[in-house]
Simulated scan of single mutants.
Amino acid sequence: MQSLLFDPGVQRIADEVTGPITYEPEVISRELAEKWFNAIRAQADWRSGMRMMYERMVGVPRLHGHYAVEDPAIPPVLLAALSVVKQHVDAPFNSIGLNLYRDEHDSVAPHSDTLHELVAHQPIVLLSLGATRTMTIRRKEPPHLKTELELEAGSLLLMGWNAQLHYDHGIPKLRYPVGPRISVAFRVRSDIQSETWGTR
């Protein structure tokens, strides 16, 4: 199932044909969001990465981490977050990906998730913690309509499996100072041992 189990206050960015993509603010309180942000930032196994750009290796502009839900080393705060998410989204999540945007210079380029790594027709859900960052969501087909969505602390963004076929999404750099943000991504992976982690 890809639909949110709640309706009031849900912002619908894309319909069921090309999505769905839905946004729900204030799923958890600001106080709980801050508590979870601090715990995840302190407890997660953060890693840096490298990528090829313009024929040279450069650092990925954010930190990331990944846990299988059944991993005995998973921080308990992530299981608490999973429990809340499953109250809102009916899906057998088995993977939790993390991205830490340390400041306005960290970002992720427009992209869509790699579908062969995911169980077909299962959703991707992002829980935002920390500073508000803008996500751009752009239709792949002409006229390439774009939405700019402010991802607030304590909010959930749901993207349907098929939305990856029709939309790109990204977090652009900013020209003004902003505090750190953590994105917690819940997925149903077909191979949770894969070292190729999704990025948000």
Rank of each mutant, 00 (worst) to 15 (best):
Q87L: 10
P172C: 08
R175Q: 10
T18N: 15
V27M: 08
L63S: 12
I124E: 04
L151T: 01
P25G: 10
K140L: 09
T114E: 05
M57L: 12
P110V: 02
R51G: 04
I21H: 04
I137A: 06
A131L: 04
H105T: 08
M50S: 12
E55H: 12
G130T: 13
Q87S: 06
G65Y: 03
L145V: 07
H105V: 03
P177L: 10
A131Y: 12
D71N: 15
I137S: 05
N38H: 06
K35M: 08
A120V: 04
R181S: 02
G65A: 15
T22M: 01
P143V: 03
A185G: 14
D168S: 10
Y67T: 06
V60M: 15
N99W: 01
M1V: 07
L100R: 14
H88S: 08
G49E: 04
R189T: 01
W36I: 07
P143T: 03
S3K: 12
E16A: 13
L156G: 03
A109P: 03
D45H: 13
A14C: 13
R56T: 01
G179Y: 14
V77I: 08
A42W: 03
G154K: 04
E152G: 03
P142E: 07
D71W: 15
P142Q: 08
A120I: 02
D191T: 00
T199N: 10
H121C: 07
Q2D: 05
A39G: 01
